[in-house]
Design a binder for these strands. Sequence first.
RNA 1: GACCCCAUCGUCUAGAGGCCUAGGACACCACUCUUUCACAGUGGAGACACGGGUUCGACUCCCGUUGGGGUCGCCA
Length: 468
Amino acid sequence: MSVVTRFAPSPTGFLHLGGARTALFNWLYARHTGGKYLLRIEDTDRKRSTPEAINAILDGLEWLGLSPDETPVYQFSRRERHAEVAAQLLEHGHAYRCYCTPEELAEMRQKAKTEKRSVRYDGTWRDRDPADAPEGIEPVVRFRAPRSGKTIIKDAVQGTVTIDNSDLDDLIMLRADGTPTYMLSVVVDDYDMRVTHAIRGDDHLTNAFRQTQIFQAMDWQPPIFAHIPLIHGPDGTKLSKRHGALGIEAYREMGYLPEAMLNYLCRLGWSHGDDEFFSMDEASSWFEIADVNKGASRIDFDKLTNLNAKYIDASPNERLLNLIAPDIEKRTGKPLNDETRRRLSEGMNSLKQRAQKVSELIDNSLFYCVSRPLDYSEKATRNFDYASRSRLSSLLPKFAAVDDWTQDVLEKLVKSHIEDTGEKLGEIAQPLRIALTGTTVSPGIFEIAAVLGKEETIGRIEDAIAPP
RNA sequence: GACCCCAUCGUCUAGAGGCCUAGGACACCACUCUUUCACAGUGGAGACACGGGUUCGACUCCCGUUGGGGUCGCCA
């Protein structure tokens, strides 16, 4: 039987890192086995599901390259089928109507809490004569869960997990308004979609028991469950907004590359020996659920950033150029012309080597794109003193006399210049850097001068030594 | 509180009883390279939570303790 996996987010917020990794593992496993990877939007909670969230999830997945193999299934659109299954369950005595009001249930929970008992539905209506039904109250439909015995799950990650049925209560399958709840919908949809492997967060482990019971009541074969450990925040608790947990699109905006995100997420809870830096093609050929760890892992932004730097460095210049172009145009307020494009692509090799994020690449590339006179950074202004000015003045005529304007020639020229003057290289290189870039940090200064061209270089030096 | 799960450097992890003097990556600290910042390279510091078993031999298996996490909604 061919593998079918699914990612089943509820559209109540953005696609966060945990969700992205769950999607990734499902994708990876489907790719590894030559199976299918599906997406199901679990929007049965009409109050909290939003179209914005759906878009955020779809866009996020697309950015990561984790779009589903088939058109997404919207769970709410299948509500009639869910209700039909509930009716069947009702008919066969696997479910019953419960007339408790939400207020009564809240009271029940409160009481259980104060008496320090476990908080479960007490089964008031489980065996009660439906004739007792109070007037004017729309009932919910509850699953008649087995009261004794055990439910066992053979989880592909967690191993065999057993729970006493007495620890579970009768969950609600149909709300008072007749709409299905998550617990029922998941079972029906996983069955109807022929899902073979439900790879999802560890926080669903308890649900898996309830769902298994429903599968059993319907006499359906449940999928193989694989409960992957959660991603925790730096403090070791479930990742949440409190940790500044953001949607995947925020990472995109911060300047992370999708392949870096993927590579990083992949290494959280899964590993293949000592491999750290690898493509998703490699990962999918290696990916076995058995290699997924059981313990939760914490997010480590330093490592993500480090990986991102590696991916930026490994990216083709053309791609980076296209990536940064829109932002650069926004920052300079003018479209990128051929000359700036040329400069950027010639300078990109050194530029990309020192950027950890795309946003940094943009910052550091800007000096190639702005027109004279340059704005100097505060530090640059502070470090550009009288001596700097006079050093550049004495170098300027030599630059002006150069015909063969190459990095090599310029470097030799400056080196012989300092032999004449007795200056240290840094004493001339740093002012030159400020003149050419407006900053104190940049790629090699001779490369920059070469890329900038003779006219622009000389112009920038003249700007720098001109009286303020 | 009840139930379930987990436990190797600060973090992510390798480790399937002898291969372990516990390996790699990030971060950290030195040094090298060097015109700045990076990159790169070399080296360093840094962990098997604890206690019992089992075994000739436990990071690896079993039990307990401790610690951490998750779940207990007409949310998903």
